[in-house]
Design a protein around this nucleic acid. Structure first.
Length: 625
RNA sequence: GCGCGCGUAGCUCAGCUGGAUAGAGCGUCGGCCUCCGGAGCCGAAGGUCGCAGGUUCGAAUCCUGCCGCGCGCGCCA
């Protein structure tokens, strides 16, 4: 259940038997070790527990780290302020307190001032090397995301799911898990029948010719027209329009016939279905490529459809499922407000739920996963509660480790996107607007200096950064209001701000190299060399940056554990801000000697942390932009 | 009606496994390029953390009730 805790205990034992604090890359743990040395008798807290208790004081003037003593109060039967006073005293008496320079009790807290040089030597080399934490073998986990329907267009709403799912995959991998990124295409169902009805019956031969590119999108338009027409007839019929009622009835008969034809494997219909379906899949593949998202496995609804029905029949025989009003389902009384979970329609055909059972079994048995994550919008919370409960009653123990990541919707300032009102913003429109905006406003000045290919590639990276960060920075519980003009504003808390900071930092190293000021590689490998150089760091901006850099992996771990990429977004934004403050206050290139080396190391460490952090979000980090 | 979620600065949001003086972006106003890239930096103004109780040494954070908004609620996906 908590593999990470086990890993960290292990790491602690190893570190404890190897007295080399300068090679320990976590500042918090280096400090925690000193705290443990100074702790009064009778307190049983591990280095890791102590490290986790450390927080930042509200005001940097108070100290670099703060240790709250509330947790010790019960064990010691004393008030936190008294404990803080004692602890501060004992820390001052330690023969070697490094990297702690000063400990002062302030009410229930012990505020710790660190030796900046010592702290920097602990934190920076690992970050500059791009080091990743070691992990014990993690779990085998599948993350299912994206799941677009074929025959429909891919719009900005789909983007949130894609960005979230991809980031979760990356975070879980970095956290030591073996992750299978899975997609699940909706290539069967009523929407297909509606689309094919219009395509086959309502288009002239000339109109039926698909365009050379974006055929999936073209198909999506056909679907929308069909859908809207049916809705219109429905309303007119409800209002008493007999002609509309006839048209509606005829259309419904036709879509039902198409559906039945497909189920019966009518060769002609299947051929059309397969051809059109591939138009959509090709569009999706192109989008995933542009976004830098890859999948390890692709599922299709069409492959679990029949199996789902077999499962329903099987579990009906076993008495797990029941018949109700001619349909089949299961009563999950745990969900009081809607206990019945429908699994097979009266007409004997399958539903979304039917297929989810078969899909889950496939995941469990063929892919042998320990844990299963579904990234699907929050409206389907009840559905997944039912799915997981049902799987458990079917005897799948893995149901305990199934998890729905429900995220809120992407809406427009005017309200939800509506295909009917024609207010859907296609992903391609966003991508193109963003890309040309980036070129026109920021990259045009490099025309001639940079190759056209580099400009195009950079524009893609920045546009992608803006879109992905916009989708990820907001908590999953919050709705995203998509306003194109606001999204095109790339200043402030945005993806391009992070990318820009990375590019600026990289540029500093480039400019320094031009005047033969380069980082001595020994600083990355030799703790003593690093320590000698970092002693030159004294500025508050340098201090802030070092302290923040120490947080990179704990934050990534927290984001992974809570399946919330937004946590990492917030951290990276604060890191970038700290770097820009440093950059404003502390010139690197004009520096000399130890200070130059220490600042080069600090810049390299920031580049490492930003590049890795952005990578965990699936955002590229250009070297210049 | 029942269920889930949201409500923090003019707007959009962090902070929510309880802890020190509630933070940021945008917008407004005012500053900063002799210096490594102004997609940047600094400053100012701006808040009864929806309301009312409760738990606690301590509540934006936990509990209860209410108000407002959104979403979901058997034969769609």
């Amino acid at each position: 259940m908590r593999p990470f805790g086990r890993m960290r205990t292990l790491a602690w034992h190893m570190a404890a038997s190897t007295p080399a604090p300068s090679t320990d890359h976590s500042l918090a743990r280096a400090v925690a070790r000193r705290l443990q040395d100074a702790l009064p008798e009778g307190v049983l807290l591990s280095v890791d527990e102590l490290a986790e208790l450390l927080t930042a004081p509200p005001n940097p003037a108070l100290g670099d780290l703060a240790f709250p003593c509330f947790r010790l109060a019960k064990a010691l039967r004393k008030g936190p302020p008294m404990i803080a006073g004692e602890l501060a005293r004992r820390l001052a008496e330690l023969s070697d307190a490094a990297p702690i320079a000063e400990a002062t009790a302030a009410g229930p807290y012990v505020n710790l001032r660190l030796d900046l040089g010592a702290a920097a030597a602990i934190v920076l080399p690992g970050s500059a090397r791009g080091e990743r934490p070691h992990h014990a073998a993690g779990e085998r986990v599948m993350v299912e995301f994206s799941q677009p329907n074929t025959h429909k267009a891919f719009h900005v709403g789909h983007m949130r799911n894609l960005c979230l799912g991809d980031a979760i995959v990356r975070l879980l991998r970095a956290d030591g898990n073996q992750v299978i990124a899975a997609n699940y295409f909706g290539d069967v169902g009523a929407h297909i029948a509606k689309c094919l009805w219009w395509y086959l019956d309502r288009l002239s031969d000339a109109e039926r010719q698909p365009p050379a590119s974006h055929r999936g999108e073209w198909l999506g338009q056909i679907y929308t027209r069909a859908h809207n027409q049916l809705e219109e007839w429905q309303e007119q019929a409800a209002a008493g329009d007999a002609a509309a009622a006839d048209l509606l009835a005829a259309a419904k008969a036709r879509t039902t016939a198409i559906l039945r034809g497909l189920e019966a494997r009518d060769p002609e219909l299947v051929a059309i279905w397969d051809e059109t379906r591939h138009w959509s899949l090709a569009d999706f593949a192109e989008i995933y490529g542009w976004c830098g998202v890859t999948f390890d496995h692709l599922f299709y609804e069409s492959e679990v459809d029949e199996e789902g029905l077999r499962l329903v029949e099987d579990y009906l025989q076993r008495g797990i499922f029941v018949e109700s009003q001619g349909a089949i389902g299961i009563f999950n009384e745990e969900i009081k407000h809607m206990p019945f979970f429908l699994l097979r329609k009266q007409d004997g055909t399958s539903l979304y739920s039917t297929k989810d059972l078969a899909l889950a079994r496939l995941k469990f048995e063929k892919f042998q996963i320990d844990r299963s994550i579904y990234v699907v919008d929050v409206r389907q919370s009840d559905h997944f509660r039912h799915v997981f409960l049902t799987l458990k009653k079917m005897g799948f123990g893995q149901a305990e480790r199934c998890q729905h990541v429900g995220y809120e919707m992407v809406e427009l300032p005017e309200g939800p996107m509506s295909g009917r009102k024609g207010t859907v913003i296609l992903f391609r429109a966003l991508r193109e607007a963003m890309t040309s905006h980036v070129v026109d406003n920021y990259l045009a000045k490099f025309r001639g200096e940079w190759s056209d290919a580099e400009i195009d590639d950079t524009a893609r990276m920045v546009a992608l950064g803006a879109i992905k960060y916009g989708m990820l920075a907001r908590d999953v519980q919050q709705k995203i209001v998509f306003d194109m003009s606001a999204w095109l504003d790339l200043e402030g808390n945005t993806g391009p701000y992070l990318q820009y900071t990375h590019a600026r930092a990289t540029s500093i190293l480039r400019k320094c190299a031009e005047v033969d000021k380069e980082l001595d590689p020994a600083l990355l490998e030799d703790p003593a060399a690093a320590r000698a150089a970092t002693a030159a760091l004294v500025e508050p901006q340098e201090r802030e940056l070092v302290l923040l850099l120490d947080q990179r992996w704990p934050v990534a771990h927290q984001a992974a554990q809570s399946l919330r990429p937004s946590v990492l977004c917030t951290y990276l934004y604060n890191l970038a801000k700290a770097f820009n403050r440093f950059n404003q206050a502390c010139p690197v290139k004009p520096s000399e000697g130890a200070l130059l080396q220490a600042r080069l190391l600090l810049v390299r460490a920031t580049i490492g942390a930003l590049a890795q952090g952005l990578d965990l979000l699936g955002i590229p980090a250009p070297d210049r932009m």
